[in-house]
Design a protein around this nucleic acid. Sequence first.
DNA 1: AAAAATATGTCAACATAACTGACATATTCG
DNA 2: CGAATATGTCAGTTATGTTGACATATTTTT
Lengths: 179, 179
Amino acid sequence: MSAPGATNPSATELLCVAMGDGNELDFEIIELLFFAYRDFISDPDAILETYGFGRAHHRVVHFVNREPGLTVAALLDTLKITKQSLARVLKQLVEGGYIHQVAGPEDRRQRKLYPTRKGRELALALARPQSRRIANAFSALGESDRRAVVQFLAGMIDKDATGKTDSGTTGGAAGEASV
Amino acid sequence: MSAPGATNPSATELLCVAMGDGNELDFEIIELLFFAYRDFISDPDAILETYGFGRAHHRVVHFVNREPGLTVAALLDTLKITKQSLARVLKQLVEGGYIHQVAGPEDRRQRKLYPTRKGRELALALARPQSRRIANAFSALGESDRRAVVQFLAGMIDKDATGKTDSGTTGGAAGEASV
DNA sequence: AAAAATATGTCAACATAACTGACATATTCG
DNA sequence: CGAATATGTCAGTTATGTTGACATATTTTT
């Protein structure tokens, strides 16, 4: 284990005071968001595991159910991932009978995505515990406080409409989030 | 492209109505949390990329700075990941001179983690844009509304102390404390 | 009608960050 | 001493993201 008891070079300047003392930065909210989100996605994660699915499937099934007839391009734009990333999970969901693809009526190049009954049920099953958690967190709050929460969350979201969809070959940044 | 125009079996029952219509589930907050969190972490992500680091490094450097002297076990419990997962990023942070390990004064098996000046600066640089985003979202809210947001986020967090720490072979004792 | 652009799909290779399992080592405790 | 604990590490797997290159169907433009 290479005895790091000796690894304290008195010249290296170790900081022993907690970050946040005398600082203006909002560490409280930063950490609350981290823990809240972590637990928020833990509910559907447990359900997904029984299906052999992951968070990526959750996001796809969620948005397709929220907006049936969504095109692949629109979904890519919402999720901000590459089509290659989407392809893998979408294929599984289509083959598993959760989602169907239908050629666009106007533009037949498009693939419009629709949930099946089974897909709708999965999406609802995943949303239920999350909704329950939200209701629980809301239970102590009044109507005006709840509106404040909505306003706050909306204010945290980037407004710039830098849709990125896909580009030529592909396109991408970096990300992983989760619903 | 295997013309899926014919893949609409009229017996498969596709749902064309958006999930959420006439439903009690709180889809608005579910989606706000998704987008808010995604954008919230996009800020530090961009900075981390210039260091060749990822989100895992962010979390480690953050909590070590927030609680200097944290032991490895405590950090694992906070992050709820395995020691093998932590090992990789912690090693890079130690070798890069962002974090130092010091044998515990009482229990010399422990490795207490301290940020260096460099590590503190990284943590602050990562927290800054997040704090700015929060301040921006808060700017329209009054003191009582801000308290409501804190209360809401806290209410979203699991209170049960079912830590999971490790599993491998080692210290996976039964009962653990929590954050 | 031919050419270009668009929407989608797909193959291949790779990176990150999580996981499990097994084992090593130092230290503390009974 | 021997068991438990705290940490580290090797090896292999999985999930999800990435880039690059190319194929195919369809629509739009010239």
